[in-house]
Design a protein around this nucleic acid. Sequence first.
DNA 1: CCCAAATCAGTAATGATTACTATTTTATTA
DNA 2: TAATAAAATAGTAATCATTACTGATTTGGG
Lengths: 123, 123
Amino acid sequence: MKNYSKQREAILEVLRCTDTHPTANWIYEKVRETIPNISLGTVYRNLAQLAESGEILSLHVADGFEHFDFVTAPHAHLHCKQCGAIIDAKLDIEPLSKLSNDLGFTPQNTIYVVYGICKNCKQ
Amino acid sequence: MKNYSKQREAILEVLRCTDTHPTANWIYEKVRETIPNISLGTVYRNLAQLAESGEILSLHVADGFEHFDFVTAPHAHLHCKQCGAIIDAKLDIEPLSKLSNDLGFTPQNTIYVVYGICKNCKQ
DNA sequence: CCCAAATCAGTAATGATTACTATTTTATTA
DNA sequence: TAATAAAATAGTAATCATTACTGATTTGGG
């Protein structure tokens, strides 16, 4: 059902080696350094597939871009409204996925996004 | 700085009277019933302004649409990957924004999205 | 080696959102 | 009430992240 591809491997590798939360286009530019003729569509398709299978996390914040995260363990994302940075934060509360059972909802994963202003932008 | 407009009033009224989490276009269609020649751009502009001022909540989930919520108090959103429904859920944990973080981040509001499958779609 | 399914590169199309402009509305002051 | 500037609007055009499509290439199992 799911075959190996060196493109997908390279995409995962790029994501593994960054601590930011890049967009598809950023990853595309990065992967092009090793696979110059890779297609942007290929990047999108593989990212969607990896997110679907739970290997990576897809993150939608209020900047109009889809962001990706190699870390799938529950954690919070602090999104600076000014500079656009997405900062990881430890989650020292119980994940929400435990809560939603009384509604008959089967949770798969939870995204926490805190909007605000980061340290740098505040001065 | 901010003047009254009957268009903004109508947009807020539509949002106040729905328990779903509509998109700009859905709100546009609804407001057109009372203001037939309102412009879609006007709906977008006012929703952005209302979200910016904190009167409503802007919600980005993995369906490519921006959704809006009249309820600004912290609560979780259960998003069904199958039918696309967004269901409100009580938040019986301490909101993330209250948590002190040593990252120097100034939180303004937090969005909680739980992805999964809803009761109906599960059968 | 052979074949079917999966994946790809390259390109075109989609469509939610934003930008632009000339006109109208609002709030204030005289 | 009239005059004025700022804010908001309708209508339309432009943007651009993402998706869809197509014919070629790669993968994996027998």
